[in-house]
């Protein structure tokens, strides 16, 4: 019992000391809402970045996983919270650019109704297929799909996911909405069925598929970025492979409620920038296959422009996609 009391006294003293030294923003821990389950790609990027940002800010950034409805539940909670700078969120392409067209009753407006902080990292998207699909390259694949869209099965990780969003965009560009969409709970199980040949193709982030492509258990037709990826140098870009219209990248970025104090925004932008310049953090992000954002994309305005650009690109295909 004595030990217990001593321990508590020490704990209390520590806590009081912590509270006394703080001046200006931030004076208490900041909550970063990750709108997906712990362990997923967005969660990992959030934890890596938040770890370093906490050091710069002098206050812990607490990750809170609020999953649901393709990540829109958590983002809605974050951007409708009190704009005091103590609630922010790590969202992605789906929650910020695709959500308005995906979810008709969306409770937030990513373009006008939130304060962007900056992009944290991008991941290239690949078109991958089961290894015994006849088409040898993207051109043949596109031709085959266009000829018999009804014969193909496409796997995705649920409505609103990156794989669903990017593949719906692909189907929109090809004009083949009739391809059968097979929904999985997460890209892991979807990839499993692609490896075993139960489904024909899918679009997904390089992080998830790179190992399987290298192991030749699936084949990659193209990467939907401007440049080839150093992680998979043999995979041509969509431009090289003959489908230049299909350009999309999945990214993660931080935003908060509209009306945050300028001091909070500035400090968060600064902390994010420092985190992305930190060698250790950079290496951990690059190891994941992430592409670091440009100087422009790290600013609130640049990130907002990116959200807008991708929203414009995705909206036509997503709005036309069957949802009900």
């Amino acid at each position: 019992m004595k030990k217990l009391v001593l321990g508590l006294a020490a704990a209390a003293a520590l806590a009081v000391a912590g509270a006394a030294q703080a001046q200006g923003y931030p004076t208490k821990p900041i909550t970063m809402i990750v709108p997906f389950a712990a362990g997923g790609p967005t969660d990992i990027i959030a934890r890596i970045v938040a770890d370093n940002m906490s050091k710069t800010l002098g206050q812990q950034i607490v990750i809170e996983n609020v999953a649901g409805a393709g990540g829109t539940t958590g983002i809605a909670r974050a951007v409708t919270a009190a704009p005091d700078g103590y609630t922010i969120a790590m969202g992605h392409l789906g929650t910020f650019s695709a959500a308005p067209a995906t979810y008709p009753g969306l409770k937030y407006d990513p373009i006008n109704g939130m304060q962007t902080i900056g992009m944290a990292g991008g991941t290239p998207i690949l078109i991958v297929a089961r290894k015994n699909l006849e088409a040898p390259d993207l051109k043949a694949f596109v031709a085959a799909v266009k000829a018999n869209p009804d014969k193909f099965n496409e796997a995705h990780a649920g409505l609103g996911s990156v794989s669903w969003t990017t593949c719906t965009l692909l189907k929109g560009i090809l004009g083949t909405p009739k391809i059968n969409a097979v929904a999985y709970r997460g890209t892991g199980p979807a990839l499993n069925d692609l490896v075993s040949g139960q489904v024909d193709f899918m679009c997904d982030q390089i992080v998830s598929v790179a190992e399987q492509v290298r192991a030749n258990t699936i084949k990659a037709y193209a990467i939907a970025s401007a440049q080839r990826s150093p992680a998979l140098p043999d995979v041509p870009t969509t431009k090289e492979a003959g489908l230049p219209e299909y350009q999309i990248e999945a990214w993660n970025g931080i935003a908060g409620p509209k009306g945050m104090p300028k001091e909070a925004v500035d400090k968060l932008v600064d902390a994010l920038g420092k985190a992305l310049n930190d060698e250790g953090t950079k290496k951990r992000l690059l190891d994941l296959g992430t592409v670091l954002p440009t100087a422009e994309e790290r600013t609130p305005a640049g990130f907002a422009a990116l959200i807008k650009r991708d929203a414009d690109k995705l909206t036509p295909a997503l709005s036309a996609a069957p949802k009900q």
């Binding site: 217990l4 508590l8 704990a11 806590a15 004076t27």
Partner: peptide, 24 residues
């Protein structure tokens, strides 16, 4: 107190301790 020491300090869970008093 035991739970606070175990969960908050030993395991450093982000569980609020007494925000109204200590700010954490």
């Amino acid at each position: 107190l035991g739970c606070i020491l175990l969960f908050k300090y030993a395991l450093s869970l982000p569980i609020p301790l007494a925000p109204w008093l200590l700010g954490i």
